[in-house]
Nucleic acid binder design. Structure first.
Lengths: 104, 104
DNA sequence: CTATAATGTCGCCGTACGTGGACAATTCAT
DNA sequence: ATGAATTGTCCACGTACGGCGACATTATAG
């Protein structure tokens, strides 16, 4: 089998989906259901459901609180100029997509 | 003097203020003014101003885009059970504060 | 297969968002 | 001191947020 035991290789957060997946995974590993985590974070269960599904317009403050409650530290990494597909910095791929705002 | 030259010791993101400070610092290091960064991210300049000041209810999607534009990777660290002041996990200090929601 | 829990949806509602445009205040060169 | 550039603030507007409560739809037992 592959080398990395249960060492998570190094997760990068780039999108709301990443956040959602992370939260859900860690919540389950912590043995909490949505209702309980929501309660601890101080949000509605509905909110958690949507965020775990990658809601892009969730409030950053609440998201950070959820991460803190689950004891998930967010670190600022050093820029890697060749990680996965490079978004040419200077030209705004993402910003263009933005114009066509996803309805959820 | 202290050991770390210009090695950033390891920044942890825990609050919207942290994000704001980070964005502002990196924006300036990149030699961009708010107008230019806002343009590249695809948001209004007003938005950037507020986020750099720590706006807690900014959309997470936009924030992540801003980080990406500035080429700032966010990594998921491994939980440290003694980093700074510990928030007893299980009891929700933050959630309580939440009730008294800051008017901005 | 049947209870029961857990998760996903639906409306309604008050509130704040993010934007564009204009203007004030501040910082920076010269 | 003068002017330009950068940053901060204001308003009005349309839109979506997040909360609540109820219900529908899967999982998980038993």
């Amino acid at each position: 089998m592959s080398p990395y035991g249960d060492i998570e290789v190094m997760m990068l957060i780039r999108t709301p989906q990443d956040i959602g997946a992370l939260l859900r995974e860690r919540r389950q590993k912590a043995g909490l259901d949505q209702a309980e985590l929501a309660r601890r974070v101080g949000v509605s269960r509905q909110w958690l459901v949507e965020v775990e599904h990658g809601k892009p317009r969730a409030e950053i403050g609440l998201v950070l609180r959820a991460l803190n409650v689950l004891d998930i530290p967010l670190e600022v990494g050093t820029p890697r100029y060749a990680t996965g597909v490079a978004d040419t910095p200077g030209i705004d791929i993402d910003a263009i997509v933005d114009a066509a705002r996803k309805p959820q």
